[in-house]
Each structure stands twice: as structure tokens, then as C-alpha cells.
Simulated scan of single mutants.
Amino acid sequence: MNLCNSGRAACYTGRSVAEAAEAIGAEKPDLVTLNEICQDDVTTLERAFAQVHTDDRAVSAFKAAGDRPSGAATRCRNGQPYGIGLLTHLAAARTRHTVHSGIYPMQDVTDPEERAWLCVDVPGVLHACTTHLAATSVTVALAQCAHLVDSVAPMMRRNTGYAPTVLLGDLNLRRGGTPDVRSCVPSGYLRIDDGALQHVMATTDARICCGRSVGMHGATDHPGLLATLTIGGGAPP
């Protein structure tokens, strides 16, 4: 899970709903991205998120990964769609937002799970995206990352105008790896990671000052990543 607060921003990536809800309550993030999650669990975490942003309107979004053999969604063991999620909050009930999502055109055909991307666009305020890139091929993961930064992010700017952009998730690419995740970071973006596969990238008007791991008590295969950002002089998204 990736959590982000703006002004003091938090970003997490993990799988356990109970641990994620506890982390949300403790860290009070402004933006949360979720990988490897069932659809109904996003709704559960939205309730936990709303409890720490009682003056604002909580917003959640979910995108199921594709399942190549069936041509439908990948499913959790309980039958729910399985994929990625995003939580944020809007400062006023009248603030409009748009959810964008899709399946990457490039996939590892040996992997039955087709990887997806998901964005929430708050015009003039913030473009926030999450993804969980291919785990079976670093070449495909890099191509998917390039599609996110070179096609998806510009698409939102064309549709609703420029806003600070934050991209978070499990990229299955490493700093210093082959290929190096930094080859996917566009000019004009900042980036931090957890020392492994989780990354936060942001345009330079969303300044990243620091990041740390948040323990998930063995509930997932890696800890959460908490990043602190300042967006637009510290105003929350």
C-alpha cells in the first residue's frame, strides 16, 4: 500500500485490510494507493479513511486486473474482482473529480494477470495515479511504466488542464536494477522508493521531502511506504 499526505503527505502499498485501516488511522494520509486488493475491501478502507477526514468528502476508486484466460476480471479467492485501488478526499462537496482507468496495451503473455492503471483527476488540483506493474518481466514492466508517464498522465492534462501529478505503486522495478526504474522517470519529476519495488513519483510542484517504511506486521510481502509531500504550498488535495 502507498499512503500520501500533502503538506505532510503519506503513501502506502500492502494487502491486509485490517493493517491498512490501522495505518490509515495512525498516519491520517491524504492519499492512499492499494495494490493486490479485492474490490469490497476498498469500500471498507474508504470508511476508515473517511473517519480521519470528517470535514471533507472521501473518494475511492478501483480497477480490476484483467484475466487473460477468461477475458474477464482477475478474481480474489472469495470471488470478488482483484486489482488496485485509490483513496483521497476533496475539500468541498462540490469539487468534481473524474476516475480514469485501463488495462495496459503491453502485457506479458505468459502471465494470466493483465496489469492495470488507475487515476483520480481533480481538475486544477491534483492528478493521482496508481499501478501494479508486471512481476514476470522487467521489460514489460518498464514498457508499462513508460505508458503511464508518457500517455496516461498527458491524457489527463489534455482533458482537464495541468495539475500537480503524483504516481504511486508497486512498479516491480528497482533503482540500480536492469533496467533501472530511473529510466522511466520523466524529466521534471521527483522520485523516492522503499529500497525495493515501491515508488512515488511526482512533478516538482509536488515536493517530496522524505519517506519511510511502515510495518504491516507480516500481513503482506512488503511493508507500506509512507512519503511526505508538499503540494501547491501545502494545501491538501
Rank of each mutant, 00 (worst) to 15 (best):
V181N: 06
R96S: 12
G161D: 08
D111M: 15
S101T: 02
C119M: 01
G232Q: 07
V125A: 05
A202M: 05
V140S: 02
H53N: 01
A9W: 11
M156T: 10
G71S: 07
N159T: 02
T230S: 10
M216V: 15
H127F: 00
A20N: 07
S16V: 14
Q80T: 14
V122C: 01
R212F: 12
H97A: 03
V185D: 11
P223N: 15
Q144T: 11
V200A: 11
L90Y: 03
C145G: 08
R96A: 09
G161V: 00
A64W: 08
D56A: 15
V99T: 08
Q39L: 02
A65C: 13
A134F: 02
H147A: 14
D150L: 10
S70M: 10
I208F: 04
C145Q: 03
V109I: 09
C119P: 02
S187L: 05
G124A: 11
K28E: 12
R15Y: 14
H100D: 00
L133H: 04
A143F: 12
P236N: 13
G176M: 03
R68I: 04
I84A: 00
G188R: 15
G233T: 08
R8P: 07
T98W: 01
M155Q: 14
H127A: 04
A64I: 06
S151W: 04
V166D: 05
A206L: 10
Q198V: 03
P237W: 03
S70N: 15
I192G: 05
R75I: 12
E113A: 14
S101I: 00
T131R: 06
R212V: 13
E46N: 11
A48T: 05
A196R: 12
T136M: 04
H53G: 05
A219E: 13
T178D: 08
R57P: 06
A58W: 00
R57G: 09
Q198W: 00
C145D: 01
A227S: 12
S213A: 08
G211E: 10
S70T: 15
